[in-house]
Design a binder for these strands. Sequence first.
RNA 1: GGAGAAGUGGCCGAGUUGGUUUAAGGCAUCAGUCUCGAAAACUGAUAUAUGGGAAACCGUAUCGAGGGUUCAAAUCCCUCCUUCUCCGCCA
Length: 429
Amino acid sequence: MNKVEKMLDIKIIRENIEKVKRAMLARNQNIDLDKLLNLDKERKVLVSEIEQLRIKRNRWSEEIGKLKKENKNISSYFTSDVNALKNRIQEQDKQLSAVENQIEDFLIRIPNIPDESVPIGKDAIDNKIIKFVGEPKKFSFNPKYHWEIGEKLDILDFNIASKISGSRFAVLKNEGCDLERAIISFFLDIHKQNGYKEIMMPYLVNRASMRGTGQLPNLEEDLFRCANDDLYLIPTAEVSVTNIYRDCVLKESFLPQKYVSYSACFRREAGSYGKDTKGLIRNHQFDKVELVKFVKPEASDEELESLVLDAGSVLELLKLPYRLVLLSTGDIGFSSSKTYDLEVWFAGNGMYKEISSCSNFKDFQARRMNIKYLENKKREFVHTLNGSGVAVGRTFAAILENYQQEDGSVTIPEVLQKYTGFGVINSKK
RNA sequence: GGAGAAGUGGCCGAGUUGGUUUAAGGCAUCAGUCUCGAAAACUGAUAUAUGGGAAACCGUAUCGAGGGUUCAAAUCCCUCCUUCUCCGCCA
């Protein structure tokens, strides 16, 4: 299987070398593609040499087999040539697998090619704001940060969290628990109404799954790993859900498949030491409702747009102001071809912050995972997409900040009240 | 964690003394014959990847994964994975 995956990938690079080079440049990636192509040529030569040797060997063996069946003397066939042939094949085979390993190592680290509609840019500064939805509320007082509000209401506790686990963890208490569960249920219900099937997946996955969606090998340092069992904690339900169809051939009529999945997510947040150290924004463990789609290639552009609408719909229903941003080539993730971020308004900071990331991976993940479908009796790779629908912890925080009242209480968005059973969280003090 | 059994093509299932076996047989699917039409029956086709070729076609690899023995492995040896059964332990 791995060999298949390699060769298909390299075929595309071989045939579109200039395009791939430009794409890597746009991503600020320094990958020696010429070296890769040389390895590819080397591979080709070795393969055909080995094939020639095998043809010889197979004919020879066949001959011996025939004679043996007829009980004829075969000793004359065992000349030193036969052994030489065998040894030669073994040697060449070793060389080949060394070359293939090098190619594999190259390919697995090459990111996806950005879609043509993605703005070229160095980083987040070159992202393009598409639209604003809803308007930030004007406060007659100085709005507080969500962790201040939450601790005062005794629904968040970071002291206990750091004692039990360390920094970047949160403990939810009292109505905080209700609110968290309410948000999760609300998200799931809305997305199910929009045609997504709910699924609950394992939080621990193997290496192959992480490679499939593209977290490995490059993002290893941002993953929690259980060394004894060589399992990883998922940084997003995307990993478990997208891998459902790894090594599968789907019927055309089966597509599109749309899933919604709640999960806890785990991230080491290596390299973000200074950022968002307080509150719920950047924790090692957080809840998220994820949307995942498997679609036919010609549908994926459109499916990304509808995915963005589906993610945005829950924010609109919660009446949380947000803006939609198209990420530049310098800011999109490793596996993605095109990504929109939804950034929700945080009244405390007075800024928009990411609450959902919706991506079209095209066939990038499908190639890694070998997910195909039958198109006119031919097998083609599916396209995969996913997006948060949306991050639960950040929604919790956004509600606190946007719905805070001057007296320190927080009102609950109307659509959530049937889930929480209450309309306001008051201070107990 | 301990003991045992098994993993073959879309599915079922042969193969177990290594040798014209990519793999019998059945089911399913597709096409054709027959029929007014259908069923039945009959005939034929039906894996994937990759290399060569305009094509017909030819080659190579693949019988859970990886490695080994051999001129030759689905068949022998080693490691790993998965599933099932029994025991133990815990929810």
